[in-house]
Nucleic acid binder design. Sequence first.
DNA 1: CACTAAAATGAAATTTAATTTCGTTAATGA
DNA 2: TCATTAACGAAATTAAATTTCATTTTAGTG
Lengths: 154, 154
Amino acid sequence: MSFDLDRIDRNILNILQKDSRISNQDLAERIGLSPPACLRRVRRLRESGVIVAEVALINPRMVGRYINIIVEVEMVRDQLDIYDAFKRKMDAAPEVTQCYQVTGEVDFLLMLLVEDMESYEAFTRKYLATDANLAKFRTLISLRRDKFSTAVPL
Amino acid sequence: MSFDLDRIDRNILNILQKDSRISNQDLAERIGLSPPACLRRVRRLRESGVIVAEVALINPRMVGRYINIIVEVEMVRDQLDIYDAFKRKMDAAPEVTQCYQVTGEVDFLLMLLVEDMESYEAFTRKYLATDANLAKFRTLISLRRDKFSTAVPL
DNA sequence: CACTAAAATGAAATTTAATTTCGTTAATGA
DNA sequence: TCATTAACGAAATTAAATTTCATTTTAGTG
């Protein structure tokens, strides 16, 4: 389930977490290894599941999607099957970009990305207001994503 | 500030948001263009700022970082300079992976990724409990990140 | 401390992909 | 309809990824 990283692996990950488009040759030079040795390490990190994916990040504002909505959800009862069913629904909802099960009064925290408030209205009707296992939810609106880093600090 | 995407651009973005490691040749084939034409479009998306970055996503659990902390922060007064100063601090804090300015009772929502609760304690002392402009904060703990997608729905 | 086995490395060769060039086609607007 | 611009694709070129294999380093053991 976990993986031992040495100094070089950490170095590689820190670079790839910022820019995975770097050529293997440049990466090799920056970490002080030959290209084949570097490539083998990167491969191992991919195959072992440390690197889950390499993706393009796009600016939501450039494509007309820029309202962030945070939703705190409280279920009627703390039951495993109720939780699992809710998670599955959130997983299928394209507006939901993040879903966290949390401890305390609140049960889930959702992060959504929507075009406008009308889209959010539609979402609440489809997924929240009609869920019999959902007790209440609170909405926080954000027009400013001041920081968004996908990098895990190492 | 925004950018007109046609059907092909959207198609490209949807693929690259899931997997930016795909070769230009394969991408070209999937969208039905020649490699040079495909490459030109991808370049344009990069240069125009639609594609902000291409990064490796790593599994926090594989590297010993797996507590997600959500913090709701309320400032003493709704003043621009107070907000800006706080944002700058959060930007500099490596534990903070996301920061959203929100409307309503709460002023900011933070997402942190920490090794253990002790690290979070240290964070609150350094950044929150000692900030004179901060009125109160509420902490939500999550051991389960059930969904985490960086893709903007298009 | 020396010896062995396993793991990691790098130079060179090979394969594969990215990128450029340039003539052609399609879209846009007067 | 015609002129202009933008986008396209085939072929050639350049650059990078990947494989091969001999060597070095590391880790464990008598």
